[in-house]
């Protein structure tokens, strides 16, 4: 027999959202993110020069790197909220970590699919078992495992504790991924921006990149917020279903 438990704040959410229709999943921040992404796309496609050596494929950099940095943000949320959960046992921290994990996996998927689209014309191959690529693929598997684990454990406290530990361990890979181009002899280019020296990129391209990075970061935060709200409603539903079940028995 399996036991299903529901976080306490979801039970209170059931009460509080009973009167109101509940918060909307996508709010003003999501609208800002969508407008920002459209503006970033327009700037990158129509108002950014084509690089002389790589051609148009260099523009993949503007979607690939911001996606990687957004994945770092989302996985940073997972790690931070997992630590908060293990410390305070607050279900909101667990739900936020879960949201960060799902959105982080989305951005990691974007990284791992746009990267080969740049690699094929520039390196001549879709994939190579380079340290950075391999570590990023490992992180993708870890985050997929994190979400599978969350779906496999019924008890809320146990699920939150197990996934918090896995979330922290997965996020520990991020510094290694970032430093892998320095630590190992890799094919992957070294950072153009996140390095001690001045960014090695012309201003026109730098503005496009920063615009994309800002829009992608806002999108990441807006999606985490939306996913959190969805999680709150899903837990409220679980609590209500459990209440109905208890009363019927």
């Amino acid at each position: 027999m399996t036991s299903v438990s529901v976080p306490d704040d979801a039970r209170s959410a059931t009460q509080t959202t009973r009167a109101a229709s509940g918060p909307v999943l996508f709010d003003w921040l999501f609208v800002v993110a969508v407008v920002g992404m459209i503006a970033a796309y327009v700037r990158a496609i129509f108002f950014t020069p084509i690089e002389a050596l790589q051609g148009a494929a260099q523009k993949i950099y503007y979607v690939h790197v911001p996606a990687a940095l957004s994945a770092y943000i989302a996985l940073g949320v997972v790690a931070l909220m997992s630590i908060v959960y293990l410390w305070l046992h607050d279900e909101r921290a667990d739900r936020l970590a879960e949201s960060g994990g799902e959105v982080g996996l989305l951005f990691l998927t974007a990284v791992l699919t746009t990267g080969p689209l740049w690699g094929k014309p520039i390196w001549g191959t879709w994939w190579t078992w380079d340290a950075r690529l391999t570590l990023t693929l490992f992180l993708w598997f870890l985050m997929a495992g994190y979400l599978v684990l969350r779906g496999a454990v019924d008890d809320a406290a146990m699920r939150a504790r197990y996934s918090a530990v896995l979330g922290i361990l997965a996020a520990l890979l991020i510094p290694f991924i970032h430093l892998s181009v320095y630590l190992f002899n890799t094919l992957h280019p070294k950072p153009i921006l996140l390095k001690p020296e001045r960014p090695s990129m012309p201003n026109e391209m730098l503005v496009t990149f920063l615009g994309f990075f800002a829009a992608c970061s806002v999108l990441c935060i807006a999606l985490i917020r939306a996913r959190y709200r969805y999680g709150l409603e899903r837990d409220a539903l679980r609590a209500l279903e459990l209440d109905e079940g208890d009363v019927s028995e």
């Binding site: 002389a52 790589q54 051609g55 494929a57």
Partner: peptide
């Protein structure tokens, strides 16, 4: 510059 626009459009 080389024509690598197909990859960029797909990405």
């Amino acid at each position: 510059p080389p024509d690598t626009s197909t990859y960029y459009h797909i990405a």
